[in-house]
Design a protein around this nucleic acid. Structure first.
Length: 285
DNA sequence: GCCAACGTTGGC
DNA sequence: GCCAACGTTGGC
């Protein structure tokens, strides 16, 4: 995310998380509490911490039925465009690896700044929900994540696109429909706090098709692990990718450039962490 | 169900 | 800001 994720396509079940799309009329979910804070507007784009929001505003949590399947994956329309997801082959350790993109520079999406960098993640004290994923393939990858999996944190849409750190999946997918609060600029020189969710038309990731009863988008919660002293740039990744027979020849994020949440094979993970070590970073693992 | 138009992502 | 890639939409 940033979880902005990008959009990917794919199918599978609903999870939740709103992002953009058409409009639906919002229902009561959007509670709006107004407080004028002089604070600054919300920060992270894609993700937003639910916890934080919840406390700020205790709003509808009532429904959250998250129980409903997390598994359904495909409802036809959702599954039609599938991304080629390489089937996940179990790794020797049983742990899976991923690469998740976020935008470290400010960018406004539906009136909301989506910026989210490795430093922003590092500053979090609580598990961070990775939200904003609005493409099925990416969402499917989120749903395939298991607690304990590791992921590279990638900075996209910035001067030097690169893998800049690592994080751990600490909570498997859940609907993105939890109430989350965001601050929106108000004409009166203050900010309005709204409960944001996929079902709120004013939310940056609003998606009219995501119904509370059947969450379409999901989030996973991640925890910061480390920030690289020396990022592994997209440029380097591409050089490997285009080298015949290279370990990164089939790396998903390079084949599907627009996929914001991609799978990293064990071999790719080892190769890349090896590069990081050569660069002088200590990779805990 | 096909496909052209359109929109978005994201590197450059 | 441009543009290529690619997903989505919507008419037929």
């Amino acid at each position: 995310m940033a979880k902005r994720k990008a959009k990917e396509i794919d199918a599978s079940l609903p999870t939740e998380e709103p992002r953009r799309s058409s409009r639906r009329k919002s229902t009561k979910e959007e509670v709006i509490e107004e407080k004028s804070l002089t604070a600054k507007p919300a920060k992270k784009p894609k993700k937003e911490s639910g916890a934080e929001a919840a406390t700020t505003i205790g709003v509808n949590n009532s429904k959250q039925t998250e129980g409903k399947s997390h598994e359904d994956d495909d409802k036809s329309s959702e599954s039609k465009s599938v991304a080629q997801s390489q089937v996940s082959k179990p790794t020797s350790t049983g742990r899976q690896y991923w690469l998740m993109k976020a935008e470290p520079e400010s960018r406004i999406e539906r009136g909301h700044d989506i910026k989210f960098s490795i430093d922003d993640l590092a500053a979090k004290k609580e598990p961070e929900p990775w939200d904003g994923i609005r493409a099925y393939p990416a969402r499917n990858n989120l749903r395939a994540m298991k607690k304990g999996d590791l992921a590279f944190f990638y900075h996209s849409s910035c001067k030097v696109p690169a893998i800049v750190g690592t994080m751990e999946i600490v909570q498997e997918h859940s609907p993105d429909r939890k109430p989350t609060a965001s601050l929106y600029p108000d004409p009166r020189n203050s900010y309005v706090v709204l409960v944001v969710s996929a079902h709120n038309a004013k939310a940056p990731y609003y998606d009219p098709k995501s119904k509370p009863e059947d969450p379409k988008w999901s989030v996973v919660h991640v925890k910061f692990r480390q920030k690289l002293k020396t990022p592994v740039t997209l440029k380097e990744l591409k050089e490997c990718h285009t080298t015949k027979g290279h370990v990164l020849e089939n790396m998903q994020m390079l084949k599907l450039a627009r996929l914001s949440v991609s799978r990293v094979s064990e071999e790719e993970w080892r190769f890349l962490t090896g590069v990081m070590k050569k660069n002088g970073d200590v990779i805990e693992n």
